[in-house]
Design a protein around this nucleic acid. Sequence first.
DNA 1: ATTACTTCTGTTGCATACATCATCATGTGG
DNA 2: CCACATGATGATGTATGCAACAGAAGTAAT
Lengths: 216, 216
Amino acid sequence: MQKESLKLYAYNLIKEKIISCEYMPGTLLSEELLREEFNVSRTPIRDALSRLEQEGLITILPKRGIMVSSLSLGEMNMIFEIRLLFEPYAVMNYGYTFDGTTLLDFYQLFHQPLENLSNQDIYSLDDRFHAMIMDSIPNTYIKQCYSLIHNQNLRFRVMTGNCTSERLIRTHGEHLDIIKACLKKDWVGASDAMRKHLLESKNSTFELLLNTPKIK
Amino acid sequence: MQKESLKLYAYNLIKEKIISCEYMPGTLLSEELLREEFNVSRTPIRDALSRLEQEGLITILPKRGIMVSSLSLGEMNMIFEIRLLFEPYAVMNYGYTFDGTTLLDFYQLFHQPLENLSNQDIYSLDDRFHAMIMDSIPNTYIKQCYSLIHNQNLRFRVMTGNCTSERLIRTHGEHLDIIKACLKKDWVGASDAMRKHLLESKNSTFELLLNTPKIK
DNA sequence: ATTACTTCTGTTGCATACATCATCATGTGG
DNA sequence: CCACATGATGATGTATGCAACAGAAGTAAT
């Protein structure tokens, strides 16, 4: 295996800690602090920070420090705007590339009773489903953009905690609607189902957010 | 005025030279070469390169050098896919925020006879028109993504040279169609006109590209 | 001629010292 | 008491030296 460069190592670790909210939104960091935490010099840290800044996960305040980007309702609005733009588009235009076996697998998985699944399982399943759909788009620029908002979405999820179980049940149902349309190769229907799913998801997410005092 | 940091200085200059194709697609650069050219140390250069790599304008080949990203037909396909996704969306959803005076100004400008304008003027006008439309989208992630493909588009334009004057005339006409629909606040019509314009533009661009041997 | 090995050169990766600047506490003169 | 200068502190910005590595070129044995 190729030895991983320190700058990549630092980049991945810092990113992970931001996404997992170990570094909470709004926290002030410093190169020195990170240097000690990872036992490397400032150089690879700086490299990592430069990239993270461009991804919007941090803001470098010249001569003052490094701020972990905060989360806001406006941010979440932008996330859903992009998901509503990209995901129905993916289903509509690249649905034909979905693998039939994979679709059937998902069909089974979303039929499992919720009690069999931990919250972690549910989110992981949800993620894999949406990832499969976005992976069908070959356009690397779209992928890159989606990856940015996906990171932010993960941070929101950590901050807001879990959905209600009613919402989880409905989510599975909406996913099944999308899959059923895909199996029938009804891409217009599948795309519409996706749009509906995202709108429902958006509503319930905002309900959750409005009860999360730290995010306004 | 705030003194510009060297890393920003280096970033802007290198970026400009890549976009203007002074550094041609596929060229191999090195930190040392750039260091000499700008009379700064490697540190700000490295910072700039790290950001440019993430923007996709260069690829850092570890221990070998820095390659200016090449251009390909696939790249151009991705550019138009995104423009076709974003620009009609902008007109449809944010057209209502367009400034009426600005629209009328554009209306006048696109009525000028072509002979009054240099190629530079024409491209600048075209750019400003599309920029106005994209600026109406408040979503910063969409803006960022669009900016990436816009940079690539500029590089293509430099490499392929100018359109035919028939195409330029038709371009102005298509722009006028969009503007007229906007003035009538017919956002569906304007969005359709935009889509048609981009498809026409795509066709003529690909004709041009197929006659540009360096890009395949 | 081919192969394997060695050496050499150019490149980035990394660590570190120093410069510069923003901020805040402190002290001083009015 | 306040306005303001001043210095301490801590942060990033920048320069630079050395290490590590990839690839090219040369060399010797087969």
